[in-house]
């Protein structure tokens, strides 16, 4: 306590120098005592007990049938099904984002017609449940016996037999991709809008060609806000491929159902599928981390 205007504070100052028995410690020597959090420790203990019980259940409950799980986890049927799931995810994502990027730039274009078409597409495909769409695609051959390229209401130049062209697998990929495109479009558009307008002005003032502006200046910066959302979409598509089981395509979830339909070991086989989904989603998250780090070059956070 130093100079205050409070008279009551005076007594400490009135002490004769030399009467103090011990000199008070210097500020740097004062010991800091942190606040205690007893309730936090109670919460930790309670959570630990619950967690242990859960693990105990997993290990000791014979209903999980870990031996069956181990026996099926890497069988050829399951591995092949995992491969199909990965293919659906990969093609669905690639095609979905390719269409999505086009739609995003259509929505950002100066032409009201292109803008409305893209808006209409996004509106439609976000409104129709994926499962309904998939069934439509699966039944495409019923609607159109053959697909052709030509002038509307006029002659056609090329035509294909629908069942031959749109097999089960491509119907599934198409359904997933078209659905994905609607979401991808909005994610890409959001990312592009997040890029500072000054960046475009700077690129324009330097005379950088238009396509190069997009590829070199806009998209790499847009990627920073696109990536977290895109990763979400890819992961949800990856798990969403299980919906394709309604089309009797041998992806992971369908195949697991087939197996437990035969041997009746429902729980361990569901665990097989779960483990694969978790494993691969983890791998995707790791990839996401590195891709995001790549695009974070030059940024402070």
């Amino acid at each position: 306590m130093s100079l205050t205007s409070d008279p009551p504070a005076a007594p400490s100052l009135t002490k004769e120098p030399g009467t103090a028995v011990t000199t008070p410690p210097a500020p740097a020597e004062l010991v800091v005592v942190p606040v205690r959090h007893p309730w936090r420790w109670v919460a930790v203990a309670a959570t630990a007990v619950l967690l242990t019980q859960f693990v105990h259940g997993l290990v000791t409950n014979p209903g999980w049938e870990w031996d069956v799980f181990a026996a099926f986890f890497t069988t050829e049927t399951i591995l092949r099904a995992v491969w199909v799931t990965l293919q659906l995810t990969f093609h669905g994502t690639a095609l979905g984002f390719a269409i999505g990027i086009v739609l995003a730039f259509m929505r950002l274009s100066a032409s009201p017609f292109l803008r409305s078409v893209a808006f209409g597409y996004i509106w439609a495909f976000r409104s129709i449940p994926l499962i309904v769409q998939l069934l439509f695609w699966f039944n495409l051959a019923y609607l159109y016996k053959e697909l052709s390229i030509g002038i509307p209401f006029g002659p056609s130049f090329l035509s294909f037999d629908t069942t031959g062209l749109v097999g089960e697998m491509s119907a599934a990929v198409l359904g997933l991709a078209l659905h994905q495109a609607a979401y991808a479009a909005e994610i890409v558009r959001g990312g592009v809008l997040a890029v500072d307008e000054g960046q475009l002005e700077a690129a324009a003032s330097l005379g950088i060609p238009r396509l190069r502006q997009v590829r070199r200046i806009v998209l790499p910066q847009a990627m920073r806000s696109i990536l977290p959302n895109a990763a979400n979409e890819i992961i949800s598509l990856f798990k969403g491929t299980s919906i394709v089981s309604v089309m009797a395509i041998g992806e992971l979830f369908y195949q697991v159902q087939v197996v437990y339909g035969r041997n009746g070991r429902v729980v361990p086989l569901l665990m097989v599928a779960t483990a694969w989904y978790v494993l691969l989603t983890t791998a995707l998250s790791v990839v996401q981390h590195y891709v995001e780090r790549h695009y974070a070059k030059g940024s402070a956070r």
Binding site: D196, G198, Q199, E201, A202, A203, A204, S205, L206, G207, I217, P220, Q221, Y295, K297, G298, S299
Partner: peptide, 16 residues
């Protein structure tokens, strides 16, 4: 525009 250099108030360097 390649014949005309422009310097902005807020620099607008490409951060990446």
């Amino acid at each position: 525009r390649t014949r005309i250099g422009f310097v902005f108030q807020n620099f607008h360097l490409f951060p990446h």
